[in-house]
Amino acid sequence: MGDYFVLAISSIFINNILLAQYLGNCPFLGTSKKMETAVGMGMAVIFVLVMAGIITWITNTFFLVKFDLEYLRTVVFILVIASLVQFVEMFLKKSIPALYAGLGIFLPLITTNCAVMGVCLILVNEEYNFMQALVASFCYAVGFALALILFAGVRERILLARVPTPLQDTSIALVTAGILSLTFFAFKGMV
């Protein structure tokens, strides 16, 4: 049990997918202007990432490794993720319209979110077993949502501040992200 706790803490805080591993930065900057969109994107990523992590793990272990096809990993993973996202979108639209209304517009963006593909590759590279892969993919996704929501909170405040013209928009957002990343950097001493 202790191992899983350490894995969870390190995936959420120490190796935070956005601020320490630099994955998924395009949606990080793109959807953090308003709290609402940040929450929506965070939830959509948690939802898809857990499923994608498990499915690519299974594909890799029982298909690619077994038949010695590991060189096809990139192509197979991206296809699995793209079709998974499409499928989730269709499923939600038909069966749970309330959830679709909340997450719908973010789902297509997730295909090209490198956090999803990145976590799938990390799970395989670290040679996690099934339970570890499940815990790690969930915790990485939680870390993503956490950082995104924190950042959106900060960014809403920046709107009220007077920012010099050349620094406006993306530029000041990046510098802020750097300071946020510095706070997460402090977790490195924990384990």
Binding site: Y22, S171, L174, V175, A177, G178
Partner: peptide, 22 residues
């Protein structure tokens, strides 16, 4: 060379690009 520096450096370079292009 650590993660936070990456964000700050890119942000400041973007600012310099904006200044130069203005």
């Amino acid at each position: 060379v650590e993660a936070p520096g990456a964000f700050v450096a890119l942000g400041l370079m973007l600012c310099i690009m904006n200044l130069a292009g203005r």
